[in-house]
Design a protein around this nucleic acid. Structure first.
Lengths: 141, 141
DNA sequence: AAAAAAATTAGAATAATTCTAATATTGACA
DNA sequence: TGTCAATATTAGAATTATTCTAATTTTTTT
């Protein structure tokens, strides 16, 4: 990474997405996009920002997450019918989901092969194919 | 269907699941299990019951749905990170989901072939494999 | 029939998310 | 650089799905 202009990468990402690089968007984008890929909820991101001394409201966190998703910078993962997870990994891939702990783990795209997918019904197009492998603890006493 | 003893099928289903065939469970079970397979939310089921002059509280609808799921009479489908859908179709199958309308449609199990599924991580077992094909309206002007 | 166990209920509580409408920041351009 | 319109942010209220609570009713057992 270019440390002489530490924010430039994220600034460009935002600009190309047509989003003004405001200070909170910038800070959130850095948390999300610098470093390894991650799975995150709005609440987690807000807590991280707060912990990093970034003053940002929950409303803004939600706004930013949705804007980033619309811009294709994030993908939403639906595994829990109560909270939304976002994934910074945009490569084709799938997920293991542990219902008991809420932990999400990536499955490389080429590790799952989907054959014979039926055609989308008339008037629709396939937006995304999600595969979730739900896991339970394997307590064989 | 046996019309001489119209409730008996559903009564047996409940009994075998270890659930007392109370009047509201019975009425809800009839709405769910008599007739074709369906996808339903708690709110929809409550509205249907009310429309059919069955007095039942939302709490009881939620209780019943979860009890039925635990008993293996229903399967939960997670497609929306805000509301829970339940499916009376217990056969292995998957779903088309239209994000704009919320409409769910079954995909026969044999219409999707999943190959090379990776092994479940240590300490876990696979509970279910969910495939959701997300659809968007295909508006080519 | 009485007692015990289980189910149902209304309404309050909770949790995630969205909305509101007021204030602040940004970028364009005079 | 200062002004202004457009956009973003905010606190807190509102909304929505769901769960909880504790009282009442129903069911089963004795």
């Amino acid at each position: 990474m270019d440390n002489r202009r530490p924010y430039s990468g994220v600034i460009d990402i935002l600009k190309q997405a047509g989003l003004r690089p405001t200070s909170q968007r910038l800070a959130l984008a850095r948390l999300l996009f610098e470093g390894a890929d991650r799975h995150i909820t709005a609440e987690m991101l807000h807590a991280e920002a707060t912990a990093a001394n970034i003053r940002v409201s929950v409303a803004t966190v939600y706004n930013a997450l949705h804007q980033f998703r619309r811009a294709g910078l994030l993908r939403e993962i639906v595994v829990d019918s109560q909270r939304a997870y976002f994934d910074t990994n945009l490569a084709r891939h799938h997920h293991f989901y542990r219902e008991d702990t809420g932990a999400l783990e990536d499955i490389r795209g080429d590790a799952v092969e989907i054959a014979q997918v039926p055609a989308a019904p008339k008037g629709t197009r396939v937006q995304q194919v999600d595969v979730v492998i739900r896991l339970a603890p394997d307590d064989l006493t």
